[in-house]
Design a protein around this nucleic acid. Structure first.
Length: 318
DNA sequence: GGCCAGGTTCGCT
DNA sequence: AGCGAACATGGC
């Protein structure tokens, strides 16, 4: 029933615990993914079939090696292989951290952060999932957003019972485009959100919107293309670059949490404005995606305070 | 028991 | 150009 285990050899340094923890921070709450006792469970949809990847670390941060077991109904070898590739991709396994570390270690503020989070790779979702996720996360508290996402995938996501557990994968653009605005409203979406999700899903399903095609484009081009879509502004565009497009220089300067974190890091603890953090961050280009992710990882782990400005003095960055 | 939580986008005045 | 609506749970 289960194909033979496969192996992933990520580009070192790769800290499996940190990276799997980052991957499941959201998905672990609204999807079927989890990271417990050193074991990552990651659900993916391969060609309409739901596959569960179970991942464990066999190696170390500097010699990483992951063992991946794939389970699911009616999976052929090539499906299992695809599920394994998708899992490696979701973990950002082959991402190169060195170029970022080289500039970060020369920075006055970043070394403690980079040292503490060494080996954290930027995890990825599909551009479509990241887009819907971002739209749902706009405008509302994280509690409400989580509830909406959970209901969404449990209503429209493909599911399968694997190892006695019901697993849901993220809904397809077709499924959400066909659901219709009224149906989404009935699962507590606002009119606006229901319209955005329906419109974007229909555009992706019909091929009029090619989110994957944005990969490799310049920041300006990506932001321009994405913000032309109704429901998408700079904040959403920048998070999408980081979470889905593999862009190294995304920086969601409109994010309040990022503004607070930047204040902690470089401004002696005082929150900075969107303009201020954007200007300050230019020195980290083109690696601002890493700074963003490392700051959020530190924040979520509750360690940001101990990792910033041990000299207690920030400069305003001007 | 009220208030706020990791706010952004769009539309109306 | 500037302000308000949109969503509605759980913790402090």
């Amino acid at each position: 029933m289960s194909p033979a285990p496969a192996f992933i050899e990520p580009t070192p340094p790769f800290d499996f615990g940190l990276t799997a923890g980052y991957l499941t921070y959201f998905r672990g709450r609204y999807g079927s993914d989890s990271f417990e006792n050193g074991e990552l469970r990651h659900v993916t949809d391969v060609g309409g079939k739901v596959a569960l990847a179970t991942v464990r670390s066999l190696g170390s941060v500097d010699a990483p090696r992951l063992k991946v077991g794939i389970a699911g109904e009616g999976l052929e070898d090539r499906d299992a292989e695809a599920a394994c590739c998708r899992t490696a991709w979701a973990l950002g396994a082959y991402d190169e951290l060195q170029p970022f570390y080289e500039i970060a270690l020369k920075d006055p503020h970043l070394p403690p952060l980079v040292h503490a989070m060494r080996g954290l790779h930027i995890t990825r979702a599909s551009p479509y999932e990241a887009m819907i996720h971002a739209i749902l996360g706009q405008q509302i508290s994280s509690h409400v957003a989580r509830m909406l996402r959970t209901t969404l995938i449990e209503t429209y996501g493909p599911s399968a019972t694997i190892d006695g557990r019901e697993c849901f994968a993220f809904p397809s653009p077709e499924a959400l485009a066909n659901a219709g605005v009224d149906a989404l409203r009935s699962i507590k979406f606002s009119q606006r959100k229901a319209e955005y999700v329906t419109d974007i899903s229909a555009m992706v399903a019909s091929g009029r919107l090619d989110l994957d095609g944005l990969r490799g484009k310049s920041t300006e081009d990506v932001v321009e293309s994405l913000t032309a879509i109704r429901g998408v502004g700079p904040w959403t565009a920048h998070w999408l670059m980081i979470r889905a497009l593999g862009h190294t220089d995304g920086f969601p300067y409109g994010d309040i949490a990022l503004q607070k974190a930047m204040g902690m890091l470089v401004n002696g603890g005082s929150t900075m404005s969107a303009d201020e953090i954007l200007k300050y961050s230019e020195r980290w280009s083109p690696y601002r995606s890493y700074v963003t992710v490392y700051l959020f990882a530190a924040m979520r782990s509750g360690r940001l305070e101990e990792l910033v400005g041990s000299d207690g003095r920030g400069d305003s960055g001007t």
